[in-house]
Design a protein around this nucleic acid. Structure first.
Lengths: 402, 402
DNA sequence: AATCTTATGTATTTTATTATACATAATTGG
DNA sequence: CCAATTATGTATAATAAAATACATAAGATT
């Protein structure tokens, strides 16, 4: 494999990190904007930008901006210059993908997975798959920039471990970042799947919105929050864990957490499936519920609508507390569409103060199955191309080019 | 009045803003730390720091740090070099204070106030009082750095106005910042009183805690949130407005907002006073309630305990959603101490997942009446001495020194 | 008091960046 | 095709900051 540019010398991109960050974040997409945003002089910007262009990390796009005179050439991160590998641990499978810096999928794999597997076995399997994907991705002379892992459990993002008892027995406090860094010399990120879906939804559809909440209603119920434009994780990474908010009533059902009356036990996929089973239907998962809804079974329609109202109670609490400008409803049950949404809207507009709902939208997610994986890619790229870490990344690009 | 230092020349502090910010934020308190934190060279730091010292803005403290050799001289913002004026609009009075940069009170005034006064009249009164305080404070040759206004209503911080219907009729959308800037050529900040109390509690007692919630339980109920070390305001500045979160029951009382079952109608000062009145006591305000509690009237004790549990229901929702590491309970009813606290703790530990309560503390506020005013001062100083605005502030110091 | 240690200031050289001015490039509109 | 217009690169002088090395300060230790 040839190097992308043999005339490349590492001194050419000394100090170019800030420019790279500006381009990556979309703050500056042209030379003129770069001059403005960086505060550097024309000569310096030209010199450093040439370094970045020679390194292959940055490229000029096809498009130009007409300006009345010579058109402005637009700059962008060269998506082909690197790749990330993300893995999403689901309830029955692990999906892995190598993605370029767009991020767009380059290659994928799926592994079988049992929730009872310990972290060591699972991470060994994942590592092998990562290694295979990396070999593939490297064939096009890309730099391996990072690994992202999505888990269906509360995650302490900074420490990179699952915290608290969860659906993943044996993972509590296990040092995932340490384990993976031992095998791969790249930055490793671990995050909860709902948080990653939140990031994906925010980056893709609502990048301009600073305060939003994503609610995932699938087999379980969870949420992620964007506060001031950034994911809000709370003290232990448990922020947004709304599934086990309770409200009591005469018929409060038993939740899988051991308490009575949690909204999960009232409105999550498994709870609706339970209620449908009691009425003689065959239903176990959120998907079964949606299948029955699609068949227009009246009982399923009724239960989903009721679930919407139940969830609406909690969403209205969230709105009162956080005052977001957008609520996005996702997860398998969100395929129920307006059936679910109307109940949520009903309760929110009934319960919240006018001030909080004045500019509030409540919409359905358009995210696909793979949104957690894209979220992981966004998370990695935003962090690595951010001002704080960009110089380390540049360093790694240089070492490769040697 | 003499200038603090006649040998002062504005070119001496060119570029010294970043150093000033580092000192103000406490990031660097010595020359060595300044060198480290700024990344500048020894010569540059010496030169700019000398400028700051000559300007009177920065001073060396009495204390030095023993180091084995020559002791390290510590640096600090010279609290005497400037002043802010803050005003707190309460239900019956407006308190004003001039404060130095510590912040510590230099002079105070109180004005009578009626909630029905319109913004124009009120601001005229406030302005006159500010002008008088400013004359006083300027006698010691200080620079007037900013004005802060605390309001008992939801505030859109960026726009500087009250939003939504509130206890302040006629103030909705009134441009307070514009009005005051018209009269005083200094930065003006407007914020909700509970948010300011939150800032005060955070800065004074828990500066190291990144995620906390302050709950004010007085005549009404409100809260403020620190998320990631910063005040979280939400989309319209209504974040933390938890007083009107409802939960239904057979005996849901009517709230002053017009809905049934809000926690305010169940557990705020006015609601307890209402219940005590129904039992033949004379009680109207939160203070009346606390007086009866102090007299150990069983009915008052019982109602306060019950209020604790009611508030605990909402606080447990807040904990589930935000995962803070600290809850601070303040406001007049917080004088009820453990009587109130135990009910809150009981519900939170009962309802929240162990992960969320593992490292959670729930404590009483120690804040005094004036905490909103100190909060306002902290808000002003943190913003003006922050990296983003420090150069403007320096500019103003220079113009004065001319 | 002499010595050690760490803090702090300063002079000098070297390097990096800016400012300025100008040259060149790539369009649009006539 | 030409002029107008805006984008972009580059040479040069001027400036700011860093690096280096050394000098001095102020306490602790002996």
């Amino acid at each position: 494999m040839k190097k992308p540019n043999p005339d490349f010398d590492r001194t050419m991109i000394d100090g170019a990190g800030s420019l790279l960050s500006l381009i990556a974040s979309g703050t500056a997409t042209s030379r003129a904007e770069l001059l403005d945003a960086s505060g550097l002089s024309r000569a310096t910007v030209t010199q450093r930008l040439n370094g970045l262009l020679a390194s292959g990390l940055v490229c000029e796009t096809q498009d130009t901006l007409p300006s009345g005179g010579r058109p402005t050439r637009l700059l962008a991160i060269n998506a082909a210059s690197g790749f990330v590998i993300v893995a999403n641990i689901g309830e029955t499978h692990i999906h892995l993908a190598a993605m370029d810096l767009q991020p767009a999928v380059l290659a994928e794999t799926t592994l079988p997975f049992s929730i009872t597997s310990g972290p060591d076995d699972t991470l060994t399997q994942i590592s092998d798959a990562i290694a295979a994907l990396a070999v593939e991705a490297r064939k096009t002379n890309r730099l391996f920039v990072g690994i992202g892992l999505s888990l269906p459990a509360p995650v302490d993002f900074k420490r990179g471990c699952v915290v608290g008892p969860s659906v993943l027995p044996g993972w509590d406090e296990f040092d995932i970042i340490g384990w993976l860094k031992n095998r791969f010399a790249v930055p490793v990120y671990v995050e909860n799947d709902v948080n990653l879906m939140t990031i994906c939804e925010h980056k893709r559809r609502f990048p301009a919105i600073d305060d939003m909440v994503f609610v995932k209603i699938g087999t379980g119920i969870g949420s992620g929050m964007i506060a001031g434009g950034r994911l809000f994780r709370g003290a232990q990474g448990a922020a947004g864990d709304i599934g086990h908010i309770q409200f009591l009533s005469d018929d409060a059902p038993l939740c899988r957490c051991g308490k009575f009356g949690c909204i999960e036990a009232r409105a999550a996929g498994w709870a609706i499936a339970r209620d449908l089973s009691a009425r003689g239907f065959r239903a176990e998962t959120a998907r079964d519920v949606i299948d029955l809804v699609d068949q227009r079974k009246p009982e399923a329609l009724m239960l989903l609508r009721a679930a919407g109202r139940t969830i609406g109670e909690v969403v209205s609490d969230v709105v009162s507390i956080l005052n977001p400008s957008l609520i996005v409803i996702g997860g398998t049950l969100a395929r129920g569409g307006d059936l679910l949404l109307s109940g949520i809207r009903e309760l929110v507009y009934q319960r919240c103060l006018p001030l909080a709902t004045r500019n509030l939208s409540i919409v359905l997610s358009t995210a696909q199955e793979d949104s957690a994986m894209f979220g992981a890619a966004y998370l990695i790229l935003d962090d690595l191309f951010g001002a704080a870490k960009i110089d380390q990344l540049l360093e790694r690009y240089c070492n490769r080019a040697d």
